[in-house]
Amino acid sequence: MDDQNEIIRFLNDELRHDLTRGAAFMTPGVAALGPEVAERIFDTISLYDDFCQENDPHEEHDFGSFAVEGRTIFFKIDYFSKDMTVRSPDPSDPSVTKRIITIMLAEEY
């Protein structure tokens, strides 16, 4: 793993632990599970560490999958320019990157 990937992974881990370090969106399917389940989902994402070659081939900790209430939940982190108009030119540079985490039911992917 190179230095850039290590920085990206660190920044993604920070976002998963503190969703205010970027922006977080949940899909209608996740919202429909209710606030208590959503809170458990957020807690699970903050503690998630089941990264492997299959779900994290670039070692950026930008995708995960787990089960809650018998439903498969996915989270995905994407990198946008600060003005949210295009992809970030450098996801390892927080001064030009806005991180967005989307939390969804697997069937909404």
Rank of each mutant, 00 (worst) to 15 (best):
M1F: 14
Q4E: 15
Q4C: 04
E6K: 15
E6C: 07
I7K: 15
I7N: 03
I7T: 15
R9T: 02
R9I: 05
F10L: 15
F10G: 09
L11I: 03
L11T: 07
N12R: 05
N12L: 03
E14S: 15
L15P: 02
H17M: 14
H17V: 07
D18I: 11
D18S: 12
T20S: 15
R21D: 03
R21V: 00
G22P: 00
G22V: 06
A23H: 10
A24H: 06
F25V: 08
F25T: 06
P28R: 10
G29S: 06
A31M: 05
A32I: 05
A32H: 08
L33W: 01
E36M: 13
E36Y: 13
E36A: 14
E36C: 02
V37Y: 02
A38G: 05
A38R: 13
E39P: 00
R40V: 09
I41G: 06
I41D: 04
I41Y: 09
F42V: 15
F42E: 07
D43F: 06
D43E: 14
T44L: 09
T44C: 07
I45L: 06
I45G: 08
I45F: 05
Y48S: 11
Y48L: 13
F51N: 07
F51P: 05
C52W: 04
C52A: 09
C52N: 15
Q53P: 01
N55G: 08
D56H: 06
D56S: 08
H58Q: 15
E59T: 11
E59C: 07
E59K: 13
E60R: 14
E60L: 11
H61I: 01
D62C: 05
D62F: 00
F63A: 08
G64H: 08
G64S: 05
G64K: 10
S65M: 11
F66D: 05
A67N: 07
A67I: 13
A67H: 02
V68Y: 05
V68S: 02
E69P: 00
E69D: 11
G70V: 03
R71E: 10
T72P: 00
T72V: 10
I73H: 04
I73V: 14
F74I: 11
F74H: 15
F74T: 08
F75M: 07
F75S: 02
K76G: 02
K76V: 10
I77D: 04
I77Q: 00
D78L: 07
Y79L: 00
Y79M: 02
Y79Q: 03
F80A: 01
S81L: 08
S81V: 04
K82F: 00
M84F: 10
R87T: 12
S88V: 01
P89D: 12
P89V: 12
D90L: 04
P91K: 05
D93W: 02
P94N: 04
V96Q: 09
V96E: 06
T97Q: 04
T97Y: 01
T97W: 01
T97F: 04
K98D: 00
R99S: 01
I100A: 00
T102C: 08
T102M: 03
I103M: 02
I103A: 06
L105Y: 03
L105C: 09
A106R: 13
A106N: 06
A106E: 14
E107S: 05
Y109K: 10
Y109L: 05
Y109T: 03
